[in-house]
Design a binder for these strands. Structure first.
Length: 418
DNA sequence: TCTGGGGTCCTAGGACCC
DNA sequence: TCTGGGGTCCTAGGACCC
């Protein structure tokens, strides 16, 4: 059996840990730039606040109902996530960290009462971190997901833990489970399935798998089989290296000048290169894109430029240089830019990277420089040393007006109890 | 005024090879 | 009238996830 442990309204729960008076009150957390609601507590959901809804549209609802609104605080959520995952790992030798707030736990070969075991996990996580979780258990990942969803939606009945198997009684759950809520079935697939009258997880489970494959490709067929209790989606036990690394951000205000775009891009390159060095890899291709605001009634422009490097690199200085060359190709004057980003691709382990005859690969000097920079920034804080191209004022920075303190990652912002 | 960011997998079709 | 068969690699775009 496999368990899916999922933190309830994770970002909101993190905020509540350090502000307990928010318990049982509506809380939402906004995306970057204070754009959309990306996490809502049950209380906020029942006010009708939808996932991904722009904040400016719900602001009045929030004010009227005294909803606590937070900008996202990723250093806090990342740190809380690490704490939760560490505890989960003590309950199984095999675990897949699926996202910042979810993990699959293998219960293979365990003889315990799995439901009771899961209650134990749930209460330990709550006690040691303050984060409430729900646990779904099933013979496959898809069924564990169904079980988790059921546990979350029926808290009174399940107390946050639910097991689903391949027995007849479980079919009753699947009958009442909308097919669009099945893991891997999105809006488009649900629309297609509706044309052949498949509306529930139950309908999908007993559909002809070859017909489903025709409609939804092999991915859809796998879901059918998983619903039947047949394992098709493997557990991924070790942290796979990223195949592409993206750093991008919307601006807090409209940007016109090339110099400002360059500054932002230099920062994105810095972030992306730090990540790629962390996984001991180099990138063979860089892509830079620029974009105006599609929601605004202004002249629209989107463009990107790619550069294939002769030899892979992870050196920030080199990559900034290439990124600027890309920008030269796509920058057009007089547009109101809203967003730029950098994507690193063709990522391979540094040890396997092809060197080049004319020394455009990472020289020993570059390697030393990057190591030193990473080391300083690790101990003195991100951005303590950086390339001048990254700028100092950074007035293009994003909005983040309601951010909570970095309670767990910054000495100066520790919670004070008075 | 105001609408996020970071990923993965799959397929069709083009280009190319013998 | 009439033009093979089998294969690989690459890319863009779609769909999905959190």
């Amino acid at each position: 059996m496999i368990a899916l442990v999922d933190c309830n309204s994770f970002y909101c729960s993190c905020e509540r840990v350090f502000e307990p008076k928010l318990e049982n009150k509506p809380v939402i957390v906004l995306s970057n730039n204070d754009g959309c609601a990306v996490a809502r507590t049950d209380e906020a959901k029942s006010l009708g606040i939808k996932m991904g809804e722009p904040y400016f549209k719900i602001k009045s609802v929030c004010e009227k109902n005294k909803v606590s609104v937070f900008s996202s605080n990723y250093s806090l959520y990342g740190d809380m996530s690490r704490r939760v995952m560490k505890i989960l790992n003590e309950y199984t030798p095999e675990m897949e960290i699926y996202s910042i707030d979810e993990a699959f736990l293998s219960f293979q070969g365990m003889k315990n009462n799995l439901v009771n075991y899961s209650y134990e996990i749930k209460s330990e996580v709550k006690q040691l971190t303050g984060i409430p979780v729900s646990v779904g258990i099933g013979p496959t990942k898809v069924l564990a997901k169904v079980a988790n969803n059921y546990a979350k939606k029926n808290k009174q009945l399940t107390h946050g833990v639910f097991l689903i198997d391949t027995s007849k009684n479980s079919d009753d759950i699947l009958k009442r489970f909308p097919v669009e809520d099945v893991w891997g079935i999105g809006r488009k697939s649900a629309e297609k399935l509706l044309t052949v009258k498949i509306k529930s997880a139950y309908d999908l489970k007993y559909a002809n798998e070859f017909v489903i494959q025709k409609m939804l490709t092999i991915t859809g067929r796998r879901i059918v089989q998983e619903l039947r209790g047949q394992n098709c989606i493997e557990m991924e036990l070790d942290l796979a290296a990223k195949k592409q690394i993206v750093s991008s951000r919307s601006f807090g205000r409209p940007i016109y000048q090339k110099e400002d775009l360059m500054e932002a891009i230099a920062n994105h390159v810095t972030t992306a290169c730090e990540k790629i060095r962390k996984q001991n890899c180099v990138a063979g291709t860089i892509l830079v894109f620029v974009q105006t605001n599609p929601f605004k009634n202004t002249p629209q422009y989107y463009n990107s430029a790619t550069m294939n490097l002769l030899s892979g690199t992870s050196a920030t200085n080199k990559m900034i240089h290439y990124a600027f060359k890309c920008l030269d190709q796509i920058y057009r004057i007089n547009y109101e830019y809203k967003k730029v980003g950098v994507i690193l691709m063709d990522i391979v382990p540094k040890s396997l990277s092809q060197l080049d005859f004319f020394d455009s690969h990472d020289s020993i000097k570059d390697d030393k420089l990057m190591k030193t920079i990473d080391h300083i920034n690790q101990f003195q804080g991100t951005g303590s040393v950086k390339f001048a191209a990254c700028g100092v004022v950074q007035f293009w920075k994003m909005l983040s007006q309601m951010k909570s303190p970095n309670y767990t990652t910054r000495w100066s912002e520790l919670l004070r109890v008075t």
